[in-house]
Amino acid sequence: MKSLAYVAFVGILLAAIPFTGSAQCKNFAKKVCKLELAPYIHDGNYNAAILTEGEDAELFKTFYAGQEYRISICGSESLPPIEFQVLDVDRKLLYTNASRNYATSWDFKVESTQQLIVLVKVKSSENGSDDLASGCVAIMFGLKTD
């Protein structure tokens, strides 16, 4: 009976892993990333996922003429630096934080409404370890209000 109870306990723990990761990511986005948008107001959207080093993600969004935006990318402390690039629909590079010491935010405005792609890459760590780090990465947008 003890063995069965142990198995059930392990099973519950395993089943809870995805939800725990998701909840941690939510708290991380709310408590850490959102603060980096100030003084811009967060648009309210939630774009976050658990990424492993070497993985990348893309986000498609339309940005509107006349509106000033701040993109903020933040990752858990366990992750290596995160590179983010902004590309146009033809995938022409418009910005990369790699040339700015992996700055975590970028302020911009568009003269005409544009659909842009935000490409986020979790760099591979340089220590050659077989243990790949995973953590929450959030892409958040701030809006200038005045």
């Binding site: 959207n45 774009n47 993985e55 990348d56 986000l59 498609f60 969004k61 509106q67 892409i139």
Partner: peptide, 21 residues
């Protein structure tokens, strides 16, 4: 981890952004 899974998000204007625009 040689091959990575690419993830794609589609982000719509939120109600707040819509109102601001």
């Amino acid at each position: 981890g040689v091959q990575t899974a690419k993830q794609i998000f589609y982000s719509l204007p939120s109600p707040l952004e819509t109102a601001l625009i």
